[in-house]
Computed example of a mutant assay.
Amino acid sequence: MFTAITIRRNPDRLRYEVLDGDTVIGQAAYIDDGGTHRIFYHTVIDEDFGGQGLASRLAAQALDDTVAAGLKIVPVCPYIKKYLASHTQYAASVQVPTPALLGVLNSALTQRARR
C-alpha cells in the first residue's frame, strides 16, 4: 500500500512525477518549446499502482501547473488527450499539435537519445 503519495514537477528530468515516499512510481513526460507550449508526450504509472486514480491525479496537477505557468497544453500523449476530452475546463489552454510543435518534440527526443 501507499506510504505517502506526492506529485511533483521535476524540471531537470522534464517530467511530473508520482512518488510513493521517495520512489517514483509514475510520470508525465513533457518538452517545453522554449516559448509558450508544454508538449506532453508520455504518461505512465507503475503497473503495481494501476487502477487507483494516480494517473488522473498526475494529469490534473501537471495540467493545472502548466496553465498557471501561462503555457499552452499540447497533448500528444494518448492518456493526456483522453483526460482532456473529459475535463473541458482546460479547453482554452489546449493547442492541437502542429507539424512545427511535433518537430520540436522530435528534435528534443532525438537529442536526448544521443546523450
Rank of each mutant, 00 (worst) to 15 (best):
residue 1 M to E: 07
residue 1 M to C: 00
residue 3 T to M: 06
residue 4 A to T: 01
residue 5 I to W: 00
residue 6 T to M: 02
residue 6 T to P: 01
residue 8 R to Q: 00
residue 8 R to C: 00
residue 8 R to L: 05
residue 9 R to A: 12
residue 10 N to Q: 05
residue 12 D to M: 05
residue 14 L to G: 14
residue 14 L to E: 14
residue 15 R to L: 14
residue 17 E to K: 01
residue 17 E to L: 06
residue 17 E to Y: 04
residue 18 V to N: 01
residue 20 D to A: 05
residue 20 D to E: 03
residue 20 D to W: 04
residue 21 G to K: 00
residue 25 I to D: 00
residue 27 Q to I: 12
residue 30 Y to D: 04
residue 30 Y to L: 02
residue 33 D to R: 07
residue 33 D to P: 13
residue 35 G to S: 11
residue 35 G to P: 08
residue 37 H to K: 12
residue 39 I to C: 10
residue 39 I to W: 08
residue 46 D to G: 09
residue 46 D to E: 15
residue 49 F to D: 08
residue 51 G to C: 02
residue 51 G to Y: 01
residue 52 Q to D: 06
residue 53 G to D: 09
residue 54 L to A: 02
residue 54 L to M: 04
residue 55 A to Q: 03
residue 56 S to A: 12
residue 56 S to E: 11
residue 57 R to Y: 03
residue 58 L to Q: 07
residue 59 A to N: 07
residue 59 A to S: 12
residue 59 A to Q: 10
residue 60 A to C: 07
residue 61 Q to A: 00
residue 61 Q to F: 01
residue 62 A to T: 09
residue 65 D to W: 04
residue 66 T to Y: 07
residue 66 T to W: 14
residue 67 V to P: 04
residue 68 A to N: 09
residue 68 A to L: 08
residue 68 A to P: 01
residue 70 G to Q: 06
residue 71 L to R: 14
residue 71 L to Q: 15
residue 75 P to N: 01
residue 76 V to H: 14
residue 78 P to D: 09
residue 79 Y to G: 07
residue 82 K to S: 08
residue 83 Y to A: 14
residue 83 Y to D: 13
residue 84 L to F: 06
residue 88 T to K: 11
residue 92 A to Y: 04
residue 92 A to I: 02
residue 94 V to K: 07
residue 95 Q to W: 00
residue 97 P to Y: 02
residue 100 A to T: 14
residue 101 L to C: 02
residue 102 L to Q: 11
residue 102 L to R: 12
residue 103 G to P: 15
residue 103 G to I: 14
residue 105 L to F: 05
residue 108 A to P: 09
residue 109 L to I: 10
residue 110 T to D: 15
residue 112 R to Q: 15
residue 115 R to M: 11
residue 115 R to T: 14
